[in-house]
Amino acid sequence: MHRLWTLLFGAAAVFAVGIFFWAAGKSGYWFPENVSVIGVDIDHLYWVITWITGITFVVVMVLFLWFLWKYGDERRPGKAVFTHGNHTLETVWTAVPAAILVFIAVYQYGAWKEAKFRSHMPDSPLHARVLAGQFEWRIRYPGPDRELYTDDDVEQVNLLHAWKDQDIVLQLESRDVLHSFFVPAARMKQDMVPGMKQNMWFQITRAGEYEIACAELCGWGHYKMKGHLIVHETKADFDRWYQEALGRQNADQRDPSIWERGE
């Protein structure tokens, strides 16, 4: 009967590993395809860490199951023997993970610097301010005068427009609780803290529509705090959209189109 547990835990381990490989074939590990410049480095780091933890997982599970199987046998005669530890073994299993951690800390440094260090923020004007609130993203563009809160601003909800290969610099703020601005396809994520202004920057290499999700549990409607990043092919396309949105926003007669996403 005790050996049944070995089978149960073994099945769970095989199931987990199986799902991992099944997901790979199914949809590329449930990751949307990377479309940002920094995403290449981040994906690489992801794989390095996945290999390290994956190998460790398999080794640990094999040992675990082997012990379960061996000592779960009820026909084994005698009582279990307690030992008081093994210094060599303990030193090794402390030193090896420590070395791995140091390796990861040093190895990831370049990507982190590129993605998050203020000194590495591109020297381009602010593209938009993202104001998070329960449960929406209010996105305000400074417009041609590059100043927020002037009459040529455009504000839209849950839609962020940009163009291909642009250095997209965002200013992130929260108006109520913790939120996290996450663009999975760009592999970029930044927490937003009420009262703090934070910056985020990335470059998208392919035109298209990508999801923006809130990645910090922010209340009951967290799951639907979703937006779209719309990347235009060229800056001219973006400008065309901007003028159209500005025109719609300045409507002083009946609105030609009520559709915020365009006709």
């Binding site: 929406e136 209010r138 909800v157 849950n158 639907k224 705090m225 779209h228 915020e260």
Partner: peptide, 15 residues
């Protein structure tokens, strides 16, 4: 439905 009601709990359903 598309714009929500700004700064209330009514969110935008623009997507």
């Amino acid at each position: 439905l598309q714009r929500g009601v700004a700064y209330t709990a009514m969110p935008s359903f623009v997507n």
